[in-house]
Amino acid sequence: MLDWILEIFDFMPVEASSWASRVDYINNVITVISVFCTVAITFVMILFAWKYRRKSENQKTAYITHNATLETIWTIIPTIICFVLFYFGYTVYHEMRNPPVGANEVFVKGQTWYWDFQYANGKKSTGELVVPVGEPVKLIMTSADVLHSFFIPAMRVKEDMYNGNYSYLWFTPTSSGTFDIFCTEYCGTQHSGMTAKLKVVSKEAYNDWLNEKKDPSAEPVLPEVTGKAIYTAKCAACHSLDGSKVVGPSFKGIYSGAKHVLQDGTEVVVDDNYIRNSIANPLSQIVAGYPPVMPAFQLSEDELIGVISYMKTLK
């Protein structure tokens, strides 16, 4: 019975991610409370207006100006409802913002007006994001130009992406199928054409797809291989891999999750955005105890992905 009431106004798309049903539940609770209050108050308003409609010109009315008890009650009740709803929204969202370790990582690049995806083994796809069912996926997203926003209705996730910066989102798909991906940040002429498909497939199908080679000459290069080459050519002079301090800090275990203290005293946990920023604007975040001598490097998106993937292998 309760479920039936909750679902009267449920027009949400299929629930295809681990939290979709919880998001919808919160949504339905809010909707039902909203509709109930709106209908009830409107009903009372119309009832009063009709019951006390003007019947004669000299009709007497009551001189009521306020009622402290009533006013206190109707201030406190909405406040409590709001606290509770905030809390529910917060808990699920907190989960949405904290991807588990070990999620499959896919790099996403939005540009006017299509989406590029790059997977752990270097495979690339455009307009089609393929992920295995039941496993968490973390999207590390950036934009080649203006703002875009990555929206998968079936997963109930959305996040904007910016040029020169990574944002992320994650989800665990729970059922296989093909779902719509939309750009939800206005980006010009073909904004409405900037759609893609999310294909959720079985683990085997996913592996087959990852390793399928349409054109043997275009064998994907593992990103960490690209990264290693860049490291050797451009970074090795100052950064060691064995923990020893050269000019700059060592890259050994850089992704271990330990906090790095910066010159101005702030602490940062190394993530993709920190690395990205350290490379492009080294002077903006200087590690405590080191001279500010690192030159800025203009790496392409692919090279950045390479360096980041390489660093993640340095345990």
């Binding site: 949504n27 709106t38 108050i41 529910f88 929204g89 917060y90 929206f151």
Partner: peptide, 24 residues
């Protein structure tokens, strides 16, 4: 009446978990 609809749907948007879906 209309303002109640406006206000209560604002709650859907103020709630983080649902706004992730509804935004834009």
């Amino acid at each position: 009446f209309l303002f109640m609809i406006a206000g209560t749907t604002g709650i859907h948007l103020a709630t983080l978990a649902t706004d992730a879906h509804y935004h834009d």
